[in-house]
Amino acid sequence: MTPEPTQMDLVFKALADSTRRLLLDRLRENNGQTLSELCERLGMARQSATQHLDVLQRANLVAVARRGRERLHYLNPVPIHEIEQRWIAAFDRPRLQMLAAIKNEAEEQAMSTTTIPDYVYVTYIRASAEQVWQALTDADLSARYWGHANVSDWQPGSPWEHRRTDGSGAADVVGEVLATEPPKRLVITFEDSPEEAGRRDPSVVTFLLEPHQDIVRLTVTHENLPNQDMYRGIAHGWPAVLANLKSLLETGDVLPQSPWEVPA
């Protein structure tokens, strides 16, 4: 009689396949991807990717969270950590036990919080996807509805700056372009304290443009926020900025007053 496979058996079975290891690598580089995004990056058919993701999910190496109709896939490092504890830590137990205790406490705190993006805002704009994309990436247009010019060549790996329009050229926000798929998806890091750049992991903003006939659904996801102060700031700021963007594209002009000046 063949014994039932243990959870550890499922982990090793999942890791034995090079394609599944590649899927984990892609999630490590950019966590929280949809099935379509993973298929695009790997050139893989949806059916094949689904089968591999099911194996990874049963092994608890991948967790799934829903966002509307989408299923977002997240890398779960816990099983790998358990392997390390069982077969590696024993060779240097005194030092590694101390490090593991610190890591376990951090992981328990992380597991107690949701992996769903910290802030999500959805708006519908009467415009084409190309028009919305241009408004997000054109320095002159962003200066009109945002009060700052978004300056970059918008290529993956390039820097971008959120520059003041007062002639000083000062940048109040800086970051890096992580992914660009015009006119569908733009991913950038977002550091609202340039002096802190490099000292902490930056937050990440994703713009997702989904056209439907004469309108576009624009979803802005802001993840990895460092503190509650930044959360409160972007929760007040994003709706104001996007309302101004919507007004500009639909009427040809921005709102009569700067919406971010309305008290929170």
Rank of each mutant, 00 (worst) to 15 (best):
V241S: 00
H162S: 12
L136H: 09
E261N: 03
S152Y: 05
A264F: 01
L53S: 14
Y145T: 10
V11L: 12
E107I: 15
A243L: 13
L56P: 04
K13P: 00
S168E: 15
P182R: 03
D92W: 00
Y231L: 08
I83M: 08
L22R: 15
L10V: 01
R164T: 03
Q57W: 12
E250I: 07
R95A: 07
A127M: 10
A106H: 14
Q131D: 13
R217E: 11
I234D: 07
D17N: 15
T219D: 11
V55K: 15
P5Y: 00
A170C: 02
L99Y: 02
T115R: 15
G68I: 03
V132W: 13
A101L: 10
M44P: 04
R144V: 14
V262M: 09
C39A: 03
A170K: 14
R46A: 11
T137K: 01
I188W: 05
A16T: 12
D192K: 09
K103L: 10
R46V: 14
D25G: 07
S247F: 05
F207K: 02
A49S: 10
D118H: 05
T6D: 14
V151S: 08
R58W: 04
V122F: 05
L136F: 04
S36Q: 05
P117Y: 05
N30W: 15
R71T: 01
K13M: 01
A101G: 13
V262K: 13
E223C: 08
M98E: 11
D140Q: 12
T219E: 05
T180V: 10
D192W: 14
W133D: 00
S48I: 11
S203C: 04
R93Y: 13
E40C: 02
L22K: 06
S152H: 06
H148R: 06
